[in-house]
Design a binder for these strands. Structure first.
Lengths: 146, 146
DNA sequence: TTTATAAAAGACATTCACATCTTTTATAAA
DNA sequence: TTTATAAAAGATGTGAATGTCTTTTATAAA
């Protein structure tokens, strides 16, 4: 499946907060999970980890919730992948040959290397801000499951 | 991890038989699993499924084992992926948005579509034969884990 | 200070990929 | 026909990703 569910949930979570930030300062897990149709506590753990990594901000208590911080929009997607899937995704051998590398390549090494590099480049240069478009209604629809 | 372990095991299994086909008509699971350092029974199930799908041949009993059939070498890798991972790998939305497609794209749709198409094209046009090189010693080394 | 609220923490369940072990079935050779 | 061999079948185990539930902690407002 290329990337984990967690990765998709993480991105959609951040994007939801970003889209809502004019309406309300903070977004609650309950609302996010409901609107995005993501298991609440599972999403909660992902959001918490992103807060720990300072990718987003979180506040407990009344009027609390999750919000963007001053660097969220500039976060490259690779940082999210790093947190949800780990960077091995881009480095591990497709044939599961342990010592596969350019010096000792598996028979699929070069065919795949190109694609993996492209993918990694895309994830390094694409930021959360890049994913946000002007039409918020269509946008919310596009990140929600239903 | 992009593709399953099963996929890597499957390819390495076929390649091992291909490389051995001058030495011996059939290759036994025991030998394959040992040389490739793949769990024996797990590899057995993958080989069995490939035999069911006529990607390779298999014979029980003494002097039995797995062998190539007349189409094995022309098998495109996509057929193996189909059997081990399923083709959804190339179709499912990275953000796990259910109704994601070109008409209703998720914010990452087009960035990823390109990569997925490239990957699929590679797997459609690359056959087992394409993976086999002249130097068998280096080749066996390259598909074995140690 | 008390209360309500919302995240954090943590225990536990489920599912699936991956792995191991045992029994059954097919078959070639003696 | 018997025997040995090798795959097929199937029961069971394990770990990681995913999902659910309950308890604890922090905090804003009254």
């Amino acid at each position: 499946m290329i990337f984990s569910k967690s990765f998709g949930y993480a991105i959609r979570g951040i994007l939801y907060i970003a889209v809502m930030k004019n309406e309300k300062q903070r977004v609650q897990l309950d609302e996010m999970a409901g609107k995005l149709n993501i298991p609440r506590h599972f999403l909660g753990k992902i959001m918490k980890r992103m807060a720990e990594e300072k990718i987003i901000a979180s506040t407990k208590g009344p009027y609390g919730g999750f919000s963007l911080n001053n660097t969220t929009l500039q976060t490259p997607l690779i940082s999210i992948i790093h947190l949800t899937d780990g960077l091995e995704t881009f480095n591990s051998c497709v044939l599961r040959v342990r010592k596969c590398n350019s010096k000792n390549p598996c028979p699929l090494h070069f065919e795949i290397e190109k694609t993996k590099n492209e993918l990694m480049t895309t994830f390094k240069k694409t930021t959360i801000a890049d994913l946000i478009q002007e039409n918020k209604t269509a946008f919310i629809k596009s990140i929600a499951t239903f």
